[in-house]
Design a protein around this nucleic acid. Structure first.
Lengths: 271, 271
DNA sequence: TTGCTCCTCACGTCACGTGAGGTGGC
DNA sequence: TTGCTCCTCACGTCACGTGAGGTGGC
């Protein structure tokens, strides 16, 4: 009298009756979820009805999203343990679903190329620049500067950009933006830069907002961030760099207009 | 004039500004999502503002659940390609959410140990057996038999179990189940088995439903399944095996009552 | 002898985390 | 000299899929 009567199935037969793959069965052996069955004369595994039942129960748990490392304990659990474990697994499934839902929200937010890493308000601002006839090159420079700003100060960007948009109601601001756009490729010695510098100095006196300049006024922005913003904006054009020097001749601290970009720790007393 | 002006950040600075880990940056290099930046005299990578912007954009996509192998194409995509890719990724996210929701449903279905791999109707049937005072051992045997049946014939189980439950309205069926339960441990020669065999033969004449017997009447069930069911039921008790022989003496084909368990392919003509 | 199944490694998947072992910079 | 950062492997994660290379059974 053998301890396990009935048919002795090969691994593929057992797999077929249990509704899993042979590879999955070997994997369950490796994890210790099912004992290795006895081998026949050829070294083939031979499975009993009991093994098939165990495999079906494992499959049920696995298909329900139960991690295999929890399956062993679950199969041996009593009613209360089982219920508790099932509740916990369900909570994990719900957390994962919440995570994916937030991914969907994020995907929808960045539904445009510009929107990558930018809040929608900045995207609208960039579209406004396009509507005003600014070149794609300048729009791209602005976009990249705002990517850095948005990553550093995600909570301040919306206010900041709203203020900036308002300044475009002033025709002189629009005009100087166009002038700067067109000056991008001028040689640094071009005399037209002098007129632009005059206009800029005039606007500076009225606090032209600009990510680079505003960043300097924003306490939490450190000097490295300012340097990165400059690298992506002013430094891109020799003419614009020269305009910085012309602004210094007019009594401003270059493009910054205000304080030099030394870093002031937030807890230091500026007095 | 260097091609990339501005600060040269170390990998941990770049990671900090971009909001990722240093390991993630190296990983992006390995996947070719970001070019390796130039090295300094010590072999350290030195990152520009442009690199930080690229890293932020990659992080945005990755955090939105975009697979990294798609990020490269997305960063270079135009508006239409980007929109199409985003729509496709969103559909994948929704499919994954649907998969997890179905896991939750499945988890809820098998919320009890019995319910593992069994439809709720079978669980209710097992509870009925308990309510009738059947031993846990016999309930477990029934459960395992139904696990095999449910895996083989998932579409037929509900009907089948409903029919079977109805037969328990007959007090004689309940009585014989109790008798079989108590006979489990009897020695095969015990004279009490004769009386049980008489009762069984009587019931067989009225078609007692039983997973083992019904399986033989169900055309799509093959002989191996029948043998597995026997191994998990009749074969578990020497007394029950002996009852099979006593039934043969009374003119039945052992426990099967009907045809011997040779497999008849579904497309074979039984005439 | 051919085709099918079985066997045991062992790499690949996905997006990195986490040491291991060693070196440069302050 | 110590502590910090950087470097390059390389294993681990999760549940198997997929060969690779070889052998037994009909």
């Amino acid at each position: 009298m053998t301890r396990t009567p009935g048919p002795r199935l090969t691994i593929s037969q057992a797999a077929s009756y249990a509704g899993v793959t042979t590879r999955a069965i070997r994997h369950y052996h490796q994890l210790g979820l099912v004992d290795e069955p006895p081998r026949d004369g050829s070294g083939y595994r031979r499975y009993s009805a009991r093994d098939v039942i165990d495999l079906i129960r494992i499959r049920s748990l696995a298909q329900a999203g139960v991690p295999l490392r929890r399956v062993g304990a679950l199969l041996a659990a009593d009613r209360d343990e089982f219920a508790a474990a099932v509740a916990e697994i369900d909570e994990q499934l719900r957390a994962e679903i919440r995570r994916l839902e937030s991914h969907r929200t994020a995907i929808a937010q960045l539904a445009t190329v510009d929107g990558l890493a930018l809040p929608s308000e900045v995207v609208e601002y960039l579209d406004m620049l396009r509507d005003l006839g600014m070149s794609e090159r300048v729009v791209a420079l602005e976009r990249d500067a705002w990517v850095i700003v948005s990553a550093q100060l995600p909570d301040d960007v919306r206010n900041w950009i709203a203020t900036k948009r308002m300044t475009f109601e002033d025709p002189q601001v629009v005009a100087i933006y166009h002038a700067l756009d067109e000056a991008f490729d001028l040689p640094p010695g071009d005399p037209r830069l002098e007129a632009i510098a005059d206009q800029l100095a005039d606007l500076f006196a009225r606090s032209l907002p600009n990510p680079t300049i505003d960043a300097r006024r924003q306490e939490p922005v450190d000097s490295t961030t300012v340097a990165m913003l400059d690298a992506e904006t002013v430094e891109r054009s020799p003419a614009w760099r020269h305009l910085g020097r012309l602004l210094e001749q007019r009594g401003w601290k270059g493009w910054s207009g205000v304080e030099p970009p030394e870093y002031v720790p937030p807890d230091a007393d500026p007095g």
